[in-house]
Design a protein around this nucleic acid. Structure first.
Lengths: 339, 339
DNA sequence: CTGAAAGCGCTTACAG
DNA sequence: CTGAAAGCGCTTACAG
């Protein structure tokens, strides 16, 4: 390997252009006017030396990192790429870099690798940051935006999420009203996952609104995961518990339900109607096509970045942004194809 | 908003613990032995002050960023999450942070936001970095690993990719040998995309090996994209060009082909056999299930990080890592279900 | 094992 | 409009 050539510094540029480093800095950052000819000389010197300012030095001197941090739970499921895409695009549009950090499950209560020391603000997905860290960061006034998670009492952190309850309620009501289903399974998401809690609430309210009792045996874990959901459903079948529909919690779980049902010889939607949540790509391709609720995940990412940027810039922010969801009727609920 | 509290520095910690900043630094980094009781005092002080070292200062002083950069073309398609997941996991396992930067299409020939000034090494997907930048970085001995792209002449940059040609050849041979197909469409990926070039080569060699002529009218653009692929196929149909199979270039394109064929009333695989490449999740769920080649994308990401780490550590690296692909026979080629 | 001090490469009041 | 110089907050030879 060739030896690492020592890269040029702002001093080299200043010398070559015959100016001070302050002037070079001004040309680079456009922080104050510089006589055009001088600026041109500096630009030429920069080009000739192929000078690129060291971020660390800029950050240290300016106390701005120009970097946004994204903390999320493990990259898994069909959900994540949409979120990331939105965050990435908006971050770039705002002129920031993106530092991503994923935590395996429940975060340890120690300073994360992302924080005030290396970012200008943090995007926190669900419970990927411990309450303690959240409190500490929040107390110092560090810009923070939560996604799909309500701030604990006393914490004033803006949050961006989707309308889960409404979506779930409309979905379950459709099952009841249009298809006469009365014994509807609900598959919960991961423990502590707020999306799941709200969807469950929508489920319960839909039942209540139609005078249907809640059978707690019909509520079990799907974990927003294909395998777990499939296993849970299989257990219900084996236990001989009677049901005529499944609200799978999310689309990934719905896939697992499809599998378990098909393996057990039950037909969808004749024997059991199945609905999901999210509207991932797969939803419109499986057989039967999946009735679900469209969640604007990419928009959540974009909007969260926008709020974070406002926070950083000291502008007023929305404490709560609730993005609308939309019922997507396909075949798995029992509606005819091409609805 | 509360005023931003000035966060503690290493000087505050040193003062509180009654030692020098050098000692604090040693405790934090474990760079040299410190008397246990002293170390404990320092740790206590760190905890009490909730001190977190500023990355910028550490980077500037140590000249190590502990950050890996990933440059890729726009986040799109079913391919990307797999790659990212592998990169992310391996980066974390190696104790690095990940900075992600996406470029829209053909990169402008100017220094990227990622480079020697803010990372210890760079992972470059396909042609997301201009040749000029690649040359400059490479010339300085900066650690670089390419993914799915062969370095230009003269550049000695390790590369990690998958066995495209073999996979494509086996796939097309299967169409010819097992299903008697002779007029096989090939849908190219984006211009300059090496995966596509190799797959085309596998396609041509398979035809040649079976004494079949190449009809250039059967080779057109799919762009590794559902919409483009669908449109291209529709054009072939309208032009009345005869074909009995389609090798779609990748799975996303195959989905588009499915759509176009179904819209035209052609049955798969009876009228036209369709095969893809990658084996994304969707492949096993669509109807008919998609015969394809499994590409170990996640492993590409992981392996690329491993090579980059070796480069950074000054260890010898593999100039070329070619990960094996595997034929996945399903129904869309004409094989019976449950093969 | 520990400390004093130089140095990493920028930015930014301040003065002119 | 420009420069001299202090300062950002760490790490790391060097000396002891």
């Amino acid at each position: 390997m060739r030896p690492v050539a020592k890269s040029p510094t702002i001093i080299d540029v200043a010398r070559l252009a015959g100016v001070s480093t302050a002037t070079v800095s001004r040309v680079i950052n456009g922080t104050s006017a510089v006589v055009p000819e001088t600026a041109e000389r500096v630009r030429l010197a920069i080009q000739e030396l192929r000078f690129v300012p060291r971020s660390a030095a800029q950050v240290l001197a300016s106390r701005k990192t120009n970097t946004l941090g994204l903390i999320l739970t493990e990259i898994r499921g069909a959900f994540f790429p949409h979120l990331l895409r939105g965050v990435e695009a908006a971050t770039r549009a705002a002129g920031y870099q993106l530092l991503i950090y994923t935590v395996s499950d429940i975060p340890a209560d120690r300073p994360t690798l992302l924080g005030e020391h290396n970012t200008d603000g943090l995007l926190v997905f669900t419970s990927s940051l411990s309450l303690n860290e959240l409190q500490r960061l929040s107390a110092t006034g560090f810009p923070l935006v939560l996604m799909h998670q309500t701030p604990s009492d006393g914490l004033e952190i803006p949050m961006v999420t989707i309308e889960n309850k409404d979506g779930a309620e409309r979905l379950v009501s459709h099952l009841i009203e249009s298809h006469g289903r009365r014994r509807i399974v609900f598959l919960r998401g991961p423990a502590g996952h707020e999306d799941s809690a709200w969807r469950e609430r929508g489920y319960r309210e839909a039942l209540a609104a139609h005078g249907l009792p809640v059978d707690e045996r019909l509520i079990t874990l799907g974990d927003f995961d294909e395998v777990t959901a499939g296993a849970s459903l299989q257990r219900l079948l084996q236990a001989g518990i009677d049901f005529d529909a499944v609200f799978a919690g999310d689309d990934d779980s719905a896939i697992g339900v499809f599998r378990a049902l098909k393996a057990a010889g039950r037909s969808i939607p004749q024997d059991v109607a199945v609905v999901g949540f999210d509207d991932v790509q797969l939803a419109s391709y499986i057989t039967p096509t999946l009735t679900t609720v469209r969640a604007p995940i990419e928009e959540v990412g974009r909007e969260a970045v926008r709020q974070l940027k406002r926070l950083i810039d000291g502008q007023p922010v929305e404490p709560l942004t609730l993005l609308p969801t939309e019922l997507v009727i396909r075949e798995s609920c029992g509606c005819p194809a091409g609805h």
